[in-house]
Amino acid sequence: MSTILEVKDLTKKFADTEVLKGISFELKKGETLAVIGSSGSGKSTMLRCLNQLSPPDSGEILLEGVNINTPEIDLNTVRADMGFVFQDFNLFIHLSVLENVMFGPLRVRGLPKKEAREIAMAEIERVGMIDKIDFYPAQLSGGQQQRISIARALALRPKLILFDEPTSALDPELTGEVLGVMTALANDGMTAIVVTHEMGFAQSVADKAIFIDQGIIVEQGVPEQMFAAPRHERTRHFLSNFVGLE
């Protein structure tokens, strides 16, 4: 499989605090990468640097071989190719479910309405929400809102999707439905980076995992191996917080 994303020595500072101190990793087409680490370690910052919601200070981000961390690149095109799913969904509250999912194809990609609608319907179907197309975000549960926000990201037909703790704002009983959708996506060959505290999901679905601590990647590898036999003390310590991992 070809490499879709290659990150080289990414750094980011806020005022005087170095939040990312040289992050490097590679992702192949179709892979799911789980990013784990304790609160404040820089996971969200890393995702936000990838699509430049926060511009990185230095480093290269090669998307299909092209460095997108240069001033010449058209940011909006890059962002449309990288889906982003937020912890708190951020659906457009004045638009219905269908309009939310049509929004990308229609307003970002500039497709005709009919085509945008077809794409949207397919993605809504994929996340199992076809009976709710005329609902507004305020009428949906958190889990349903998150599934729609995943559909909204997919409707742009991105090259990869970034998930920032997509289930952290959800009650435990709603977490399953969202992880189910994400598992199906991974099986369909979608490329994804998932920041998560769901170790079960990381272990069973992700092809790779990276553990970030204080802005550096301490350890990376295959999740089963990393979780069963962490090589670093800090990884071991972090994983010990999650009981019931086998």
């Binding site: 919601l53 962002r79 937020f86 951020n90 509250i93």
Partner: peptide, 9 residues
Amino acid sequence: QIEAAKAMG
């Protein structure tokens, strides 16, 4: 929501 729209390009 504004950030989400920005992230969509």
